[in-house]
Write a protein that binds this DNA or RNA. Structure first.
Lengths: 143, 143
DNA sequence: CGCTATACAATCGCGCACGATTATATCATG
DNA sequence: CATGATATAATCGTGCGCGATTGTATAGCG
């Protein structure tokens, strides 16, 4: 290992992580486009399908996003008719995000998306699990 | 596994990939800021330190980026004095990207960056290798 | 040689992503 | 209860990221 180059692209761990993430969201496009969603809007909807009626801050904590990203994104989802945004009565600082009927119905049209992605991801099931475990570990090391 | 939810955020492989990539570039910021680089500019410089004098298209192939992203990015690097852009004499369609002296010198100030990142990434060496292998495999499945 | 097809970079438009700031509401504390 | 501290979302500015389009240069082909 005498001539190991720490700055060679080939020797990076972070670069394939960065590149794979970009390529992945590109793969989602043909699946999400018909639903009128970008990838980030899709993960926001996933969070809301699980936890309807949470605040912008709570949503951001789940998605690792702040209000600078979420506020305009949620306005776009609102314009699409998928969510509703309203100030909390109990705490006027917080904004509650609620699914509309259309937003809830969208879930049915999205259930095939994870299955399609699993198909184009050429990993053995145990490799996919190990990858997820390692990525979660990386993510947690930045807590 | 009767009530397995394919749309739960917790069950996604792609979401931690997306989130980890974002958090990672955030970790790079304090290291790259003093060098006057963003993360994408940094990987572009890594590619150029290895292959000086390549075209925008060749650079894009290495980084999985197209000219819409690279042209403005390279102009910023040019304004910083790190690279030079000039039309190829042999093929006037192509633009050659060349490092300046300052761009080459920057490499010395960047050699510690991968080491610092390895430190904040709390993975065992064999886990890091396995993660890199799996990410590369994902990336190649989109060839 | 002329003419179409292809290649290449640049440009445009839109949507993240985020550090920093701002405005408002709530909390804490004396 | 008043006032400073904290919390929350919105806003602003900059830089990706990319699909689509444009303009120019080269290649291919009759």
């Amino acid at each position: 290992m005498e001539d190991y180059d720490p700055l060679a692209l080939e020797n990076q761990l972070c670069f394939p992580l960065y590149a794979a993430s970009k390529e992945l969201t590109r793969q989602y496009k043909p699946l999400l486009g018909p639903l009128g969603l970008t990838y980030t809007q899709y993960v926001a909807m996933m969070a809301l399908w699980e936890h309807d009626g949470i605040t912008v801050g709570e949503l951001g904590a789940k998605l690792y996003l702040d209000s600078a990203t979420l506020t305009p994104l949620l306005k776009r989802l609102e314009n699409h008719g998928y969510v509703q945004r309203e100030r909390s009565k109990e705490d006027e600082r917080a904004v509650i995000v609620t699914l509309t009927d259309e937003g809830r119905d969208l879930r049915k049209r999205a259930v095939d998306v994870p299955f399609c992605m699993a198909g184009c991801l050429k990993l053995a099931p145990e490799e996919a699990l190990e990858l997820k475990r390692l990525l979660t570990k990386v993510l947690q090391s930045f807590a």
